[in-house]
Nucleic acid binder design. Structure first.
Length: 801
DNA sequence: GTGACCTCAGTTTTT
DNA sequence: CTGAGGTCAC
């Protein structure tokens, strides 16, 4: 293997033999290269076989990258490597030994949305839902589980703590009862497995001669212990990370894992990768100055061979609109000035998603194509989750939570009354025959030693009631239950038959459940979108099947839960600027980076002023700055609209910490002039990209034009409709879309004019056919040529002037 | 099941 | 201000 292109510390890490190794890899210092080369070297030199190496990452993306790059280095010799995320790796172990920790191999993984809703249910059942919020309780439970603690660790304290103490055991009991785990459990149960069955731990410990962990600064206590178990025999644990880039403390990451690694692992070799291959000296110097103020860190100073560079620009804008406008203009100008630049070279980073709106508007106004990273992932859409719930019930019939979700979705006449009676029947049976212990908060620990048999699952109760076991359920309702049960049984028989392809099973679920007919029946645009999403789900399942021949249903469901998206390798958008949060930008790099909203209270975000939180904000800023390769532009606004009020924010302390010699010195007036001069220069130097989102930009322009100029001869007031989500069913159809409408405004009878033209940001031009409602729930039936009639649920906004 | 109205809380989110 | 939920009356 050729090691010539590695620098001395990189080579040291790659060639390090046995024993613990800590690689402190600064931003852009080539840590992935070190990891992959180390794996390749171990195999090439015959130190071990591929299957004796375990490499753990945090993200699927990182795992994929690592697998690809080692394969590039080794070819087929890389076959058999264990590369995966913590969760995927643990799930793999867990499926194999499920019975030993009270699960079956078909266990369901509940995602955070499931978790939240389950907690919500429990709060409601305890009549606590008015006073306490599921999210708050969940975050406390999660925090405990991240630290590897159970409900018994709670010390009685304030009200909230007491509620957590009541909810948590019930939550755990529900998961157990339903053969389900949450994300934390995937790791915790493996830990439990290791502790209760040391022989399993030993077997794995012996198997993995070398263990590598990426992004070690993001590990929590549980992950630390897991890694410990898997590397205690051979002690060939190599961890790579950067304490300065620890930005997930609020998710349980414990920086002290990396800070204290050398102390915990006597004889550990520490290698520092301090050469940065990404940024100019200007950028790196500034970032170093900011991070240097954090007291608790491994001392290191990044350096770069790219001396000098373009000084960093700090732009002070009058308000958030001006700031956004400046950013959009500057992107245009810089792109036009240098024909080698494409829009995909630009990234705009911000602390919170809420800031994207203003930026998006400016980008549209100036016709700068862009993509926003983040937002609701595909598998979180309610219709997708509904169908997944059907599939999960097929795979795991004990899943009461999923059963509750689908029993009346689509509506099939099984209302609360009937369902409550089913549940009452089940409770009575459980209490009566003594077979199933009732939920008993006192006797539950976080990790049960033995599986407690469930006398009757919710599904069984439904079946029994459908067969007439519960006399309080009327005949009509009973028939509906029977039809539901028959449908489920038919699907389940098909699922178990094993003859059917998974994708076809999904199609059948969509049809037999009545879901398809339900969506087709209403013909609204949201339903149309939702059907599209379901088709996409089916394609995703088919794709999964061709990648994993012979996969069973629960394997697909696991992949959905653990990989989030449909395994769509992030689309490489060429001609679009990227807008995203700083968190989302971690691990990425861009030639030109803007950081917006550098104001006290925003970035750094104001919260409880713990020292730890302060440090994390600073690290966040460091991460943001070190994304930039060539140019870094920092902006802040003197005042900003937040909610309905205008707030004045002082410039961020981080700005003041950047040494003068790294900053472009120019008077404010000059800055404004040069920003302005860029306007109109766009499109001459650089080829103007033409992609999908430009259509949106065009529309936006026209919308602005229409509003300003007034229509055919008559000047009409203009208003906008925003929002457009489906209420109740919770669809995300047109969320975020906007439409502008020309209408005749009547102060008393604020109404739309049938026949008025509408421009919708997603569906283009249309005509109002009818409307109903006002306020948040205004509904417009609009005819879009070529697309038929669509109902838009929207919010009515008074004209601005 | 739907429309109208009310209320509440607004960081980040690798899995 | 805005989106997500929830409730209540038909």
């Amino acid at each position: 293997m050729n090691l010539d292109h590695l620098n001395p510390p990189q080579r040291e890490a790659v060639l390090h033999g046995d024993g613990p190794l800590l690689v402190l890899a600064g931003a852009g210092s080539g840590k992935t290269r070190v990891l992959t080369h180390r794996v390749a070297r171990l195999i090439e030199e015959g130190a071990c076989r591929p299957w004796e190496i375990l490499a753990v990452t945090f993200t699927n993306k990182a795992a994929r990258e690592m697998r690809e790059r080692t394969r590039k280095l080794l070819g087929d010799a890389a076959e058999g490597l264990w590369v995966g995320t913590f969760h995927a790796t643990c799930a793999r172990i867990l499926r194999r030994h499920a019975e030993r920790v009270g699960l079956t191999p078909a266990f369901t993984i509940y995602d955070d949305d499931d978790q939240r809703r389950l907690i919500g249910q429990i709060l409601k059942s305890l009549s606590l839902s008015e006073r306490f919020q599921a999210r708050e309780i969940l975050s406390k439970i999660d925090r405990g589980k991240n630290a590897g603690q159970g409900p018994e660790s709670l010390s009685p304290g304030d009200w909230v703590a007491d509620v957590v103490a009541r909810v948590w055991p019930i939550y755990e009991a529900r998961l157990r009862e339903e053969d389900a785990v949450d994300f934390n459990d995937i790791l915790l149960r493996v830990l439990d497995l290791f502790e209760k069955h040391p022989e399993v731990a030993q077997e794995l410990d012996r198997k993995f001669r070398y263990v590598l962990v990426d992004e070690f600064q993001d590990t929590n206590r549980v992950q630390y212990r897991l890694v410990d178990h898997l590397s205690s025999g051979w002690k060939n644990l190599a961890v790579v990370g950067d304490d300065d880039q620890s930005i997930y403390g609020w998710r349980g990451a414990d920086v002290s894992n990396i800070l204290g690694f050398a102390d915990d692992h006597p004889g550990a070799r520490v290698v520092k990768l301090e050469q940065n291959y990404r940024s100019t000296g200007m950028i790196l110097g500034a970032a170093n100055a900011v991070i240097a103020r954090n007291p608790q860190r491994h001392p290191k100073t990044l350096w770069t061979a790219r001396d000098g560079g373009v000084p960093i620009v700090i732009e002070t804008a009058d308000d958030d609109r001006v700031e956004a406008d400046f950013i959009a203009r500057t992107i245009r100008r810089l792109c036009a000035e240098d024909s080698r630049r494409t829009l995909s070279d630009f990234a705009v980073l911000y602390r919170t998603h809420a800031m994207s709106r203003q930026l998006e508007e400016a980008m549209r106004a100036l016709k700068v194509p862009y993509v926003v990273v983040g937002g609701q992932p595909f598998y979180a859409r309610s219709e997708v989750k509904d169908i997944l719930a059907y599939l999960r019930v097929m795979a795991n019939p004990r899943g009461a939570f999923d059963l509750e979700r689908i029993i009346n979705t689509p509506p099939r006449g099984i209302g609360d009354t009937t369902f409550d009676r089913v549940k009452a029947y089940r409770e009575a049976r459980a209490a009566g025959d003594g077979g199933r212990p009732r939920l008993d908060a006192e006797n539950l620990s976080l990790l049960p030693a033995v599986e407690e048999p469930v006398a009757m699952t919710l599904l069984e109760a439904v079946q029994a009631c459908a067969a007439g076991a519960e006399p309080t359920i009327a005949a009509a309702a009973r028939k509906k239950l029977a039809a539901f049960v028959a449908m489920l049984e038919e699907l389940r028989a098909l699922a178990l038959g094993g003859k059917l392809r998974l994708g076809d099973l999904a199609i059948l679920a969509i049809e037999k459940s009545g879901y398809k007919a339900w969506l087709e029946g209403d013909g609204s645009m949201e339903s149309h979108d939702r059907l599209d999403n379901l088709n996409e789900l089916v394609s995703a399942i088919h794709a999964f099947e061709s990648d994993h021949p012979g996969a069973v249903l629960s394997e697909f469901l696991e992949s959905v839960a653990l990989t989030g998206t449909a395994d769509s390798a992030d689309g490489v958008a060429k001609g679009e600027a990227t807008l995203m949060t700083v968190h989302a930008a971690k691990g990425l790099e861009y030639p030109v980076v803007f950081i917006a909203g550098l104001e006290e209270g925003i970035f750094p975000q104001r919260r409880e002023d713990t020292l730890a939180a302060e440090g994390e904000e600073r690290r966040l800023c460091y991460v943001a700055m070190t994304r930039a390769m060539d140019r870094l532009i920092l902006t802040h606004a003197r005042q900003r609209r937040q909610f309905d009020e205008i707030r004045r924010n002082a410039p961020s302390v981080f700005l003041a910490e950047i040494p003068q010699e790294h900053l472009a010195r120019r008077p404010a007036a000059a800055a404004r002039a040069s920003a302005g001069s860029g306007y109109g220069g766009f499109g001459r130097g650089a080829p103007q990209p033409r992609r999908g989102s430009e259509a949106a930009a065009d529309e936006f322009d026209q919308r602005v034009d229409e509003g300003g100029g007034g229509g055919a001869g008559r000047s009409q007031p203009r208003t906008t409709l925003s929002g457009a989500g489906l209420r109740g069913a919770g669809g995300a159809g047109g969320a975020g879309a906007t439409a502008s409408v020309t209408y005749e405004y009547d102060q008393d009878d604020e109404s739309f004019r049938v026949g008025a033209r509408v421009r919708h940001s997603k569906f283009g031009e249309g005509t109002i056919r009818s409307f109903s409602g006002r306020g948040q729930d205004a509904r417009l039936v609009i005819h879009f040529p070529g697309q038929g009639e669509r109902t838009i649920v929207a919010r009515f906004i008074e004209p601005a002037d």
